[in-house]
């Protein structure tokens, strides 16, 4: 299978999942799409080195998560540059701008879930985003490079924290 066909197959099977993980990282729709396209670019670039030693889905999620983590750092560097120049840091888009339902097309409870996820630190956001994608513990451990037991503990704790945030934001959201 050539590179383009491989990419198309990956695109068909994983595009929505990739996008949803991106949604867990940034709220602003433009930034989301930028991040989404960056992930696709990295998938394209990494195709030549894919050896098939892990499931394609796992491999794609590794790229997605690493790109999201790297992207947050890049945005931070851009914000630093703007701030140093005395400009409004918000101009580069910090990914926390409101995302109106009519733009994102999401239901209120999903939008609320993302608002809660965005209050978590980056690694916890990553864990919960993968968990919400119905990813098994073994597969998550493979993506993260951790032991399955450790992943189980982490997920348990993150869910607890997220539940707390969900309950706290409930009054203001509903």
């Amino acid at each position: 299978m050539d590179k383009e066909s491989q990419f198309k197959a990956i695109w068909q099977a994983n595009r929505d999942r990739i996008y949803r993980v991106c949604c867990g990282y940034v709220r602003d729709e433009d930034v989301r799409q930028d991040l989404f396209q960056t992930v696709l670019l990295h998938v394209w670039e990494s195709l030549e080195t894919y050896r098939g030693d892990s499931q394609v889905g796992t491999w794609v999620f590794r790229i997605t998560v690493n790109t999201c983590l790297g992207y947050l750092r890049t945005r931070r560097r851009q914000q630093n540059l703007w701030t140093q120049r005395g400009e409004d840091a918000g101009r580069v888009g910090n990914g926390l701008a409101p995302c109106p339902t009519e733009v994102c097309g999401m239901r209120d409870d999903i939008e609320r879930l993302y608002i809660c996820i965005h209050q978590l630190p980056p690694v916890e956001r990553m864990l919960i985003s993968l968990h919400l994608e119905e990813m098994g513990t073994e597969e998550m451990a493979d993506v993260l490079g951790l032991s399955p037991d450790h992943v189980r503990v982490k997920i348990h704790r993150v869910k607890k924290v997220l539940r707390g945030i969900w309950e706290r934001t409930g009054d203001g959201m509903e």
């Binding site: 750092r73 931070r76 630190p121 980056p122 951790l146 032991s147 037991d149 503990v153 982490k154 348990h156």
Partner: peptide, 21 residues
């Protein structure tokens, strides 16, 4: 600052005792 972010993320992934699982 970016290095500090990376180290925070690494720390967040560190193995912890499975007491709450």
């Amino acid at each position: 600052p970016l290095l500090a972010d990376i180290r925070r993320m690494k720390d967040a992934l560190k193995e912890e005792p499975a007491d709450e699982a």
